[in-house]
Each structure stands twice: as C-alpha cells, then as structure tokens.
C-alpha cells in the first residue's frame, strides 16, 4: 500500500519539481513563451479531459468557452476598468454560467447529437463575437489587455508580471497545478467514479441510482469554468484577442492535445499540450504542412494507440511488469 502511494505521487512530484527548477537553467525568452503556452493549453486540455475522458461527452464548444473566458477578461479590464485579478474570477464564472445555460438543454441529448449541438453553439459564439463589434471590436480585435498587476511583498518590494517571463511562468504553472489538482479531485472523488460509470454505461448508472444528468452537468460546468480560466490567462498573456480564438479550430486543437497525449489519463492532456505546440512552433513557417502532419498523427494515434502517449506508456509498463513476473 505504501509503495503504491509512493508510486502514485512520485512521478507527478518529480514533474512538478522539474517544472519549478526550470528557471535555474533557462534564460531564453522564447523557451519561456513555449512553456507558458503549454501551461495555458494544459489547463484547457485538462478541463476538456474532464468532460470527454471522464464523462464521455464530446463537447465541441470547448474553444467557445475558452473564447468566452478570454473575451470576458478582455472586456472587463478594457471596458469596465477591472484589474486583471478582479476580472479573472469573473471570467471563469461567466464561462461557467454559459456552461450551465448550454449544459441544461444540451446534456439531455446524447452522443453525436450532443457533439453537433455544442459544435453549432460554438459557431454561434464565434459569429456573435465577430459581428457584435460595438462590444467586441469584431475583426479589429481587442488590444492592450493588461498583464496581471504587481503582487506587493513585504518590505516594499513586489512581484511584477509585465515583461517578466519567469514570474509569468510561475504564475501559470501555479494555475495549471491548481487546475490539475481540482479537476482530478473532482474526477477521483465519488462523483468522479460516477462520471466513469456514466461513460461506461448510462443506463446501468441510472439503474444503480446515479443521476447521469446531474453528474454530467457538474462535469460540464466545471470543465467550462476551467476552459474560461485558460482563456482569461491567454488573454492577459497575449494581450490581444480576435474572434478566431473562440472558433472550432481551437476546440480541435485542444481535442488533439487531449487525444494524442492520452484521453482519460491525468498526464495525457498536459503531455499533449507540452509537446504538440512545440512541434507546431518549430514548423511555424510550414503552417499547412504542419496541419497535414497533425491530421495524419491524429488518425494514426486513434487507430493504433487510442489511449495516446500516456496510455501507451501505461500499456508498456504493464507489459514490462507482467513479463518480469
């Protein structure tokens, strides 16, 4: 039993320590940029994993919730004069409220109906952001979204985030770790087990007294809340938003990270969000080729390794363990 606890926490602990130590070795701003983006997409993919990997619902509006969070943060800071810290919780809550409003009707549908229903909702969100330019500035985009304000420290000093890649990196890493802890707390708690029961067999879950609807709704709202968080962090880090940040390409991107990393596993979405953007950044000049490569990768993974990189590692370890016996 003790050994198991060690095993369960050892790898994540090493990963966290390694992530904390990164600034000792790296000064390159570009590497920080990649790491920061990996944190943002890691939050988005982890939250998608909750609704898709644990509750089995393909939410194709995830990008829209990311966009709602991003625009909420942008509009609150730019148009209503909120501070970043003031806007951040509101952005998450606004995304979650939309999650509730969409989830109530949408989760009554199943399978493909749910996927397409949410996809259509996502398209509507993008078009509204695009056309309602008196509010959102439409195609011109929202510019100058502020970085997080300084956090004062005792003795008159402060942590500044503007132009401070190391501080920004630590901040986003903190949010990523918090997201992972909370989401897997949800997934691992009793309701987490019911999510899995819902995914395996909805009728069975219902027959043993688990309300699939309530469980799915909780998963959906939690997942949209964190999608909104990822969006808000993105808005503040990049400082600029245009309607495309809410469209289904973003959903697909997050979906790809989740799938290739390993759906239904804790590490998978983060691994996907770490590796794939790096690949795509290196192939930046070859955007269309990169997308073709993504497509091929996605198809191959789904056919040959449906549980992704993390699932593949698990499988190899299980084989290794059984061959040792």
């Amino acid at each position: 039993m003790k050994k198991n606890i060690l095993k369960t926490y050892l790898v994540p602990a090493i990963a966290v320590i390694a992530a904390l130590l990164v600034p000792l070795f790296i000064e390159n701003r570009y590497v920080y940029h990649l790491l920061i983006m990996a944190c943002i997409w890691g939050i988005a993919a982890t939250s998608m994993n909750l609704i898709m990997g644990y509750a089995g619902q393909v939410n194709l509006a995830h990008g829209a919730f990311f966009g709602i969070g991003a625009y909420a943060a942008g509009l609150l800071t730019l148009k209503l004069g909120f501070s970043f810290w003031g806007a951040l919780p509101f952005a998450c809550i606004i995304a979650a409220i939309f999650g509730l409003l969409v989830g109530l009707p949408a989760l009554r549908t199943k399978g493909s109906y749910f996927a397409i229903g949410t996809l259509c909702f996502g398209v509507i969100v993008t078009v509204i952001i695009d056309r309602w330019d008196t509010l959102t500035e439409g195609q011109r985009g929202l510019m100058g979204i502020p970085s997080p304000e300084n956090i004062p420290l005792p003795f008159g000093s402060a942590i500044t985030f503007e132009n401070n890649m190391v501080a920004t990196y630590y901040l986003l890493l903190l949010f990523l770790i918090l997201t992972v802890l909370i989401i897997y707390r949800i997934a691992g708690s009793l309701s987490g087990r019911t999510f899995k029961a819902v995914r395996e067999n909805e009728d069975l879950a219902a027959s043993i007294g688990i309300s699939p609807f309530r469980t799915k709704l909780i998963a959906f709202i939690a997942s949209t809340f964190f999608a909104g968080l990822a969006g808000a962090l993105y808005a503040s880090y990049i400082g600029f938003l245009s309607p495309e940040i809410s469209d289904f390409h973003v959903t697909f991107e997050i979906l790809i990270y989740t799938m290739i990393g390993g759906i239904g596993t804790m590490a998978g979405p983060i691994i996907g969000a770490m590796i794939l953007p790096v690949i795509s950044e290196t192939l930046h000049a070859l955007a269309a080729y990169r997308m073709v490569a993504y497509g091929i990768l996605l198809v191959m993974v789904i056919i040959f390794f449906p549980s992704g990189i993390a699932g593949g590692i698990k499988l190899l370890r299980a084989r290794w363990a059984s061959s040792k016996q």
Binding site: F252, M259, A288, V292, G295, I296, L297, L298, V299, I302
Partner: peptide, 18 residues
Amino acid sequence: HLNSFIAAIGLIYIIENG
C-alpha cells in the same frame, strides 16, 4: 464511435490543408 468521429476530424486537417 467517438474514435471514428475524431479520426474524421484528422481527415479534415489532412485534406483541407492538403
């Protein structure tokens, strides 16, 4: 079925960008 759905998304990437 989810897997077919996602494979189709992969095909979109391949063909549209091709």
